[in-house]
Amino acid sequence: MKVLTANRLTDGEAVWFSAAGSWAETIDGADVVADKDGEARLEAIGKAAFDNNEVVDVNVIDVDVVAGVIKPQRLREVIRAAGPTNRLDLGKQARPAAGAA
């Protein structure tokens, strides 16, 4: 399964394309696709957002969905989705509302 991620142009914030059709600051509500067509759709959305100067460093990444929770497969993406592992007070993991987005 895959989701679409990027960094927001203005502040570099890591963002994921959500099932609600917008760029969200957490991975929780990301638009998860399970087939080639879905992947192509996300890639097209990413390219359009890049071309429209909304986001940079656009990537479609591998995830698993375990008990309804989206988990990136690569550690790199786990860290992007949470924050530095040595600073639990920073990044998405530090947000009181993390998980509620």
Binding site: L9, T10, D11, N53, D57, G83, P84, L90
Partner: peptide, 28 residues
């Protein structure tokens, strides 16, 4: 000009690097 969309990321990237600005995992 970048924030206004007047120049593309491909045009801007070498300019920002010359001024010490990288894009990392969480932010610039």
């Amino acid at each position: 000009r970048r924030l206004a969309g007047e120049i593309t990321e491909d045009q801007f990237r070498p300019l920002r690097l010359m001024n010490g600005v990288y894009l990392q995992l969480h932010a610039y």
